[in-house]
Design a protein around this nucleic acid. Structure first.
Lengths: 341, 341
DNA sequence: CTGAAAGCGCTTACAG
DNA sequence: CTGAAAGCGCTTACAG
């Protein structure tokens, strides 16, 4: 192999042992926490590791421990969603960084089609990753159950719907966030408040709508079905939803949109209909994604704490891999006021 | 380990051999291409694999082959860039899919800081991936050289600047794309054509500016330095660039912006300055990223063939891992006309 | 074409 | 605390 000439054979534990004047077992013990090793040996081994530039061969280690020391980030979204929605981006980055701190590589897996799902399930259940960070907005997803039944440590982003059992998840407090936004809209004196929901088979869809209804009820504003449009988290969906709402309720004076991306679409529809934002219609989004500051006017929105969400997902997953039981973590949201309200 | 009770010990090559009535060597040969195996044995082994649900243990295989059968996707961008720029998203997705077709997992690596760079270099040179897809817009990047010198197969996205030697890369034809856009602007009768460039230590920055200058020269339009602003591929940079340009050259009638994201910022600046697009100022972007259709008006832009770029990056990398020499691949771009011109 | 055997680099009881 | 040894699941010359 001329081509790999530049790639020298890396030092093994054997080289380190020789260099340090100890057995390979002792080197291994140092590598794995230094229990039952004398300070002198410890020292000698560490020095030898430094001199030789030794890096553990993970394949050999994995072969014997049965663990891969890697984690999968599994995305079960249709391709367009992943392109369009910056939230995935933020989450992926956050998880990669949190894992990097533990020196654990992240394997990116995308299962948009049923064939991909099958291939990836096989791969995962064969033990090629120690656990899975599952990201998908829809949640009838049989993948989660298949993996859980196979005993694969798993943490979902967002509460799986119909989630009866022991699946860990990390989520923002969707309902509370929605409440904050609708209260804010009410505090502005708005009373004809429409909403564009997420898909109603997603936690975000259901919970944010629930929050909207609760606050209106508290405020004594009667619930009006015509003020509710169901969206799909896409920009186009937001645009269509807002257009429909304007048709049905022309005197609409505020809009709570369940994602920033949909809110962006709603802004386009409002603009086309000649409504001024926020003067005629105040618009609130959800997520505080990059989309929120790219619109004109910039979006008032509910911040999801993505950094914490990804950090917690990693923490819970690693705990579970370590033998702990599953856990659910709910994180608070925050109202971010900008120009659209 | 009660907790992993659900995870049965998976079948090994030994189980398959017993089931098929052959030796483990024969099973391995079937697994590795079926050379020197009789049809009958072939058949028996395949049946046994199906019955047992056998999946190869990659750690054991890697231990002996010295290959990891995985590929790294290395991003050396500051965090914000990755969040903001949808191009990375598209590229990442494309590469993941192209690799999945070969059943090769992608390891996502993000090296934003010098410390991360060091850690990741160690990891890679230790042989934990067979090759690297390198994505970074800036290119004084010593990482590329360090990896190449260590003999790691490597393909860059975009031509590395000052690239004297054998580093593979895949890129769109930046200069030609720029030429197409500026010709388009000229064909619209515009003559005061400004440009906002990318960073001039990136190939896109340099080449797109070169294309701009070439076409103006061909058309006999004298080059005017005041019409050139240097940007940084960010939205904010585009906004600042356009504002400066308008200050210096108020009668500007067109703008060629070297990325859609910057063009989005430029639109904001033009809007604020009371210019109508395209009536007063025609605006052309570059990339055809999702940003291009989210603006108002939608952006005329130069499409980079991201699908092909990612597919070619993977193809060239796998070829190189297989022992082939490096290669450079240049892909054509395409003018996409929308409402902004 | 096929089996028996060595060996990849590591971890982990097991004696001491 | 430490070394010698077995073994993780696979691939690959080596004989036949």
């Amino acid at each position: 192999m001329q081509h790999t000439a530049g790639r020298r054979k890396p030092p093994t534990i054997h080289d380190v042992a020789r260099e340090a004047g100890v057995s390979r077992g002792t080197v291994s013990r140092v590598l794995n926490g230094g229990h039952y090793v004398s300070p002198a040996a410890q020292e000698a081994v560490n020095a030898a590791i430094r001199r030789t530039g030794y890096v553990v061969n993970r394949h050999a280690r994995s072969l014997i421990t049965g663990r891969s020391d890697s984690v999968g980030f599994l995305l079960t979204e249709p391709q367009e969603r992943f392109f369009e929605d910056p939230n995935f981006n933020v989450l992926l980055r956050g998880c990669t960084q949190a894992l990097a701190a533990h020196d654990i590589p992240l394997l990116l897996m995308i299962a948009g089609t049923e064939a991909e799902r099958r291939r990836i399930t096989r791969y995962i259940t064969a033990g090629h990753v120690d656990g899975v960070l599952l990201v998908s907005s829809h949640s009838g997803d049989p993948l989660a159950e298949r993996l859980r039944d196979a005993g694969v440590p798993l943490v979902a982003c967002g509460k799986p719907i119909g989630h009866t059992s022991k699946v860990s998840y990390v989520a923002a407090d969707d309902r509370d966030g929605a409440r904050d936004m609708v209260r804010h809209l009410l505090s502005l004196g708005r009373r004809r408040i429409g909403t564009i929901t997420g898909p109603l088979d997603t936690p975000g869809g259901v919970e944010r709508l629930a929050g909207y209804r609760e606050v209106l009820a508290e405020a004594g504003v009667p619930y009006d079905e015509r003020l509710v449009a169901t969206g799909d988290y896409s920009r186009a969906g937001g645009e269509a939803g807002a257009a429909g709402l304007l048709d049905r309720v022309p005197d609409l004076d505020a809009l709570f949109v369940a994602s920033d991306l949909m809110a962006q679409g709603a802004l386009t529809a409002l603009h086309r209909a000649g409504r001024r934002v926020p003067q005629d219609v105040a618009v609130g989004g959800f997520d505080d994604s990059p989309a929120a500051t790219s619109t004109d006017p910039a979006l008032t929105t509910i911040r999801q704490p993505w950094d914490r969400i990804s950090a917690e997902m990693v923490r819970v997953l690693l705990a579970q891999i370590g033998g702990e039981d599953p856990a659910a973590v709910i994180l608070p949201t925050e109202l971010v006021r900008r120009a659209s309200t």
